[in-house]
């Protein structure tokens, strides 16, 4: 057990790191989207527009703290905080290097899945509490989408668990010292990435928000910092999914020459940029296509991947 002071330092490091990165992502995403669409993007506030997130935060804080009279007030206020808190809590189990990480849980992976499950309440409750038709439709879509994709999000990781023999994320990283799990677990990797995109409701899986048909979906009635929290929650969610892909499939901090934390950061950034590229290049499918894709393609693939992995582990082990 580490001394208390060191534990507190880890907590602060991880929180500050995640929130800074989430704020930076707002800038990065807008610049990259602009780059891919041959625009300039935000470049006025500070050097190269880097202070844009600060300006956004000040603007959001100075907006009216609005709770519509037709909304279910307590639920309406709590809903954005749920996604904010659960996403930050999930980072507790992410090991950045052997020394940096909030807590070393033996059930780390289950903790992550539990927190992701709780995060689903945020969109559903927000949609329901808003008392607006668009918000309700967004909330319902969120419920259907998050529930469906949660089933095989957990399932896709069981191949990794079979190979590592542990739920502890540090053990899983250590098991990849010789071979990153992305090679033997490529199917699991693809399923997890798709499920992760759906869980953070990012494009192309942003049916709960779908601004072209539902205006802003479950957060149509939100303004000010309550909207900002959904926003930060979404960006922190992207960082979370990217860092988990790094930990589970890309060997976490393992890599030659460079220090471990830098490897972790580079691998995570690679996936963050990939998610932004997906947003820039893919169109949104229909809602029924999304559901059919999940249940008819992803679920059987995840099940098959698990059984094949187990068969290989059995054949090698005997």
């Amino acid at each position: 057990m580490r001394p208390l002071s060191l534990q507190l330092v880890s907590v602060v490091t991880v929180l500050v790191g995640v929130l800074t990165l989430a704020a930076g992502l707002i800038w990065l995403e807008r610049r990259l989207l602009a780059f891919w669409q041959e625009r300039l993007g935000p470049n006025r506030v500070g050097p190269a527009g880097l202070l844009q997130p600060v300006a956004d935060a000040i603007k959001l804080l100075a907006k009216e703290d609005w709770v519509p009279p037709f909304a279910d007030r307590p639920v309406f206020v709590i809903a954005p905080a749920i996604v904010f808190v659960t996403v930050l809590m999930s980072f507790a189990v992410v090991p950045i290097t052997p020394g940096i990480g909030v807590v070393d849980l033996d059930v780390g992976l289950l903790f992550f899945l539990a927190m992701t499950g709780l995060g689903a309440y945020s969109a559903v409750l927000a949609g329901w509490a808003s008392g607006s038709k668009y918000a309700l439709l967004g909330g319902l879509r969120a419920a259907a989408q998050l529930l469906s994709y949660e089933v095989f999000m957990g399932l896709s990781l069981m191949g990794v668990v079979v190979m590592a023999g542990s739920f502890n994320l540090r053990d899983i990283v250590d098991a990849q010292r010789d071979l990153w799990f992305i090679v033997p677990q490529f199917a699991g990797f693809v399923v997890f990435m798709v499920a992760g995109l759906a869980e953070t409701h990012r494009l192309p899986f942003d049916m709960p928000e779908a601004e072209a048909e539902l205006v802003a979906g479950f957060h149509a009635e939100y303004s000010g910092m309550k909207f900002g929290m959904f926003f930060v929650g979404e960006y922190a969610g992207i960082i979370l999914i990217s860092s988990l892909i790094t930990v589970l499939f890309l060997g976490g901090w393992h890599g030659p020459w460079l220090p471990g934390w830098l490897w972790f950061f580079l691998k995570t950034m690679l996936f963050i940029c990939f998610f932004i590229l997906l947003r820039a290049s893919l169109a949104r499918p229909r809602n029924d296509q999304l559901m059919a894709y999940g249940w008819k393609v992803m679920l059987p693939v995840a099940l098959l991947n698990l059984m094949v992995t187990a068969a290989v582990v059995l054949a090698v082990g005997d």
Binding site: M1, R2, L4, Q7, L8, S10, V11, V14, L15, L88, M89, F91, A92, V102, V103, D104, L105, D106, N168, R170, D171
Partner: peptide, 11 residues
């Protein structure tokens, strides 16, 4: 590898 849950509570 059980560690205290203090940091989790703090977080």
């Amino acid at each position: 590898m059980n560690e205290s849950y203090v940091s989790l509570l703090v977080l």
